[in-house]
Design a protein around this nucleic acid. Structure first.
Length: 608
DNA sequence: GCATAGTCGCC
DNA sequence: CGGCGACTATG
């Protein structure tokens, strides 16, 4: 049944008629299945051919499956894997059945009769390969699935039992004058470190010794030799490859304890490839392929070539096996995404709440912010210009799926890289039920009627609570009341708490701040702030400067005219603005923020 | 001006 | 060491 399914799948994917040029990850599983079928077929073939010490596996070697979940849409078209150029010319290196025969030995396999049409086939065009496979599969089915499966199980096989950890390690340059560290295993933890490991599975009774050569190959197909080098234990000086030898009867498994990746500079790329060629390392016989320029320097795979020696001295080898990709931690294109914090984690279900997110380096053209709860999801809204120096994003919350919620709804927010769909760890965001008077228009009208503008400012400047009130950036278009916008962050709610605004401790304070925020929505006022390098603590600025109140008095602006939603373009904010924002959030409330020297410390984005 | 590549040096 | 941030160079 499985075979039939996979056959159908292959038909669907045009593998069988030789027109498949898809991303390999999409078809990896099918290829795996194919591989096994072909191996099974190969085992039926006649006497084994003597293989070279590290036999060139053929170009037609089915790619190993790397179940990465999703394809990487961003990989450049030129790097898209195409196993063999379709059509006319037969590539001399491609000899489909041969390696399979090489992998076979007289031992335990000779009894298997040669398969129809396999042993004699030396054709290597994409098409004939497909045809050949198609034929084999058909006959395989007639023989019965179980028989084949049994034979698959009998065959010695190199399996990656512990994949390398794909992220978290920097590739080191030689100039960094250090060991390149050790690649860990995927299941490695702080307390229990593991290493990448392989295992020789299947019948090994008569195997005296296996020699495994590890080299780096490109992530994408065809897996070409990669210019980066393996360094560490078992990696002979400057060879860039790792060679280990062991008797599988003692231990089928071998862990690679000290394998580091040393990257070469672009200048030395060609040189390094030459070196690899001179070492006869080209596991997939890709030859001197073109397109080295766009080779992905931030991702590699380990490639294991296994040669074994039988009791009688005969040597044999297996097709190369590759690991999952390993990504350079330093490359933003592939690094782990991380949200450091949001400046607020609550907002109205109507959305449009402007939020500042600090995050690890992202690429502005390849990142999205995803809000999710259950089956609902929506994107945070921002433009590329809202991504600040790769480490901060100003965005607006999407409206929640329901607008008539009566209680708070917690959703998760993640950063997602568009190209590979990689996601960060989630942080929480809480949607609040709709507020019938979001702008508190009624309340503000009341305030205005009760107090003159000037009077109110004086109150503010003199009010003790206000002196501790941090500078508050305007939240234009927010649907929250000022109270909410200032008090959203709840202490202890995930890791956002420490970035949020502290709760107010008095109502008068809130009203003062509301006024300030309204002031800050006046462009002229904001300009003044920038030009005069105001202390980030607004009210303290008022206290310090005798000019401050007169400044407000001289502002010839109509409060009501200027009050209202407008679109804030984050790119207009300069670095100083941003630092101000960030440092405000990092400053504990308990510390008085009235000292000018403290204000002066908060200057540059370096502190981000 | 911005992002990436390559280096340097602190903790 | 080794992990990391930050600096300088380059494109």
């Amino acid at each position: 049944m499985v075979l039939k399914d996979s056959l159908n799948a292959m038909k669907d994917m045009d593998i069988l008629n030789g027109t498949c040029e898809r991303e390999p990850s999409d078809i990896g599983e099918t290829f795996d299945m194919l591989e096994e079928i072909i191996i099974a077929e190969g085992r039926r073939s006649g006497p084994p051919l003597p293989g070279p010490p590290l036999p060139p596996a053929d170009l037609c070697q089915p790619p190993h499956s790397h179940n990465q979940g999703t394809s990487r849409q961003r990989s450049s078209p030129s790097s898209h894997p195409v196993l063999v150029s379709r059509g006319t010319a037969c590539q001399p290196t491609c000899t489909f059945p041969q390696p399979l025969q090489q992998s076979c030995t007289s031992r335990g396999m000779a009894s298997v009769p040669p398969p129809e049409g396999v042993g004699s086939s030396t054709s290597c065009s994409r098409r004939s390969r497909g045809a050949s496979r198609s034929c084999n599969i058909t006959t395989s089915q007639s023989r019965g699935d179980t028989e084949i499966l049994e034979q698959i199980l009998e065959k010695p096989k190199l399996v990656v039992v512990e994949e390398p950890k794909d992220r978290g390690m920097r590739f080191r340059y030689e100039c960094e004058g250090r060991s390149a560290g050790s690649i860990l295993g995927v299941s490695s933890t702080e307390t229990n470190k593991t290493q990448p490991a392989i295992e020789i599975q299947g019948p090994i009774d008569h195997i005296k010794r296996v020699t495994v050569t590890v080299s780096l190959v490109t992530k994408d197909l065809p897996h070409r030799p990669h210019p980066h080098c393996l360094v560490g234990k078992d990696c002979p000086n400057t060879s860039g490859i790792c060679v280990v030898s062991f008797n599988p009867n003692n231990n089928r498994r071998h862990s690679f304890a000290n394998l580091g990746i040393q990257c070469v500079r672009r200048k030395e790329l060609e040189l390094s490839l030459q070196k690899r060629r001179s070492q006869n390392i080209d596991p997939f016989q890709t030859g001197h392929s073109k397109g080295i320029e766009d080779m992905d320097m931030n991702a590699v795979r380990l490639c294991f070539q296994c040669e074994f020696e039988w009791d009688d001295g005969r040597k044999d080898s297996l097709s190369p096996v590759v690991s999952n990709p390993i990504y350079d931690k330093k490359a933003t294109t592939t690094s782990q995404l991380k949200i450091s914090c949001l400046n607020m984690n609550r907002g109205p279900c109507t959305g449009k709440t402007e939020i500042y997110m600090l995050c690890d380096k992202v690429q502005k053209d390849d990142i999205e912010i995803l809000f999710r709860r259950g089956s609902w999801k929506a994107n945070g809204e921002f433009a590329q210009s809202d991504v600040h120096r790769q480490i901060a994003i100003v965005f607006k919350t999407p409206p929640y799926q329901e607008q008539d919620i009566t209680e708070e709804k917690e959703v998760s927010v993640v950063l997602r890289r568009i190209s590979d769909q990689m996601e960060s760890e989630p942080v929480n965001f809480t949607y609040l039920p709709h507020n019938p008077d979001p702008y508190e228009v009624k309340r503000k009208t009341k305030i205005k009627s009760n107090l003159s503008f000037r009077d109110k400012l004086c109150v503010t400047a003199e009010g003790a609570p206000a002196a501790e009130q941090p500078f508050h950036f305007p939240q234009p278009q927010t649907m929250m009341s000022p109270d909410e916008s200032l008090c959203v962050a709840q202490p202890g709610s995930s890791d956002l708490g420490d970035m949020g605004y502290e709760p107010m401790d008095s109502n008068s304070c809130i009203e003062d701040t509301a006024l300030l925020n309204q002031l800050l929505e006046i462009p002229e006022f904001r300009e003044m702030l920038t030009e005069q390098s105001f202390s980030y603590s607004m009210p303290s600025g008022l206290e310090q400067g005798p000019d401050a109140s007169s400044m407000f008095a001289n502002m010839d602006v109509n409060f009501n005219q200027n009050f209202g939603p407008y679109t804030e373009d984050f790119s207009r904010l300069n670095d100083w603005h941003f630092s101000m924002l960030v440092n405000e959030n990092q400053t504990p409330q308990s510390e008085p923020q009235s000292s000018p020297s403290e204000a002066a410390q908060v200057k540059t984005e370096q502190e981000l």
